[in-house]
């Protein structure tokens, strides 16, 4: 009979294996200790497992959808991040990225994943870091104004359109100054 590794008294009735960063960790404990450590152990492990399983499940749907285009599947699997060397296959396995460049490397695969996890959303709305923020704010403003401009031209409201055009020009000038002053993005 295997004894609980925590209290060394009761028989170990719960056995589970934790994988952390590829390292295998076997845990054998009795129910009482499991209950006591619930938060620290079982719950955490449970959450981790179920979440990873879920995510892997979500990600694995991709190849099925793509299987009609036979060439797409091996391509995706082989995809590898140049900076941190994480492959898409490894990402699917652990459910975690290795660096910020992964977001660009796996950009084509990203939208379906983000849509499922974030109720259909794929783009950030919210805080912009203040130091890099100025130029981003300007660019977002310009993009918005360009939409308005298009609209006005379609409606043939040329006077208003000219005003908007001038506003866009002055914002773009500001943006150029920012870019010249700071590091090129």
């Amino acid at each position: 009979m295997m004894l609980c590794q925590e209290c060394n008294q009761m028989p170990a009735t719960l056995h589970f294996t934790k994988f952390i960063n590829g390292e295998k960790n076997e845990i054998h404990i009795c129910e009482k200790c499991a209950q006591e450590m619930g938060e620290v152990y079982i719950n955490q492990a449970g959450q981790g497992f179920s979440f990873n399983n879920l995510l892997s499940g979500l990600l694995n749907i991709e190849p099925i959808f793509q299987s009609s285009t036979a060439s797409a599947k091996p391509k995706t699997e082989e995809l590898r991040c140049k900076r941190c060397n994480l492959s898409f296959k490894e990402f699917v396995h652990v459910g975690k990225f290795g660096c910020e460049d992964c977001y660009k490397t796996f950009d084509n695969q990203l939208n379906p994943i983000l849509k499922r996890v974030h109720s259909g959303n794929t783009a950030h709305i919210g805080k912009i870091p203040s130091r890099m923020g100025d130029t981003i704010h300007l660019r977002k403003q310009v993009a918005q104004l360009k939409e308005v401009l298009k609209d006005l031209i379609e409606k043939e409201e040329f006077e208003k359109a000219a005003e908007i055009r001038d506003e866009i020009r002055s914002l773009e000038k500001q943006n150029d100054r920012h870019v010249d002053g700071g590091p090129q993005s």
Partner: peptide
Amino acid sequence: DDLVEETVDYAYDEERGYLTSCPTNVGTGL
């Protein structure tokens, strides 16, 4: 967050927001 950002550059993308290890936290990271 603002205090930290005064001295460190964050991994941030205009479209995706704050970039996190797990895609479930990306965007606001909140």
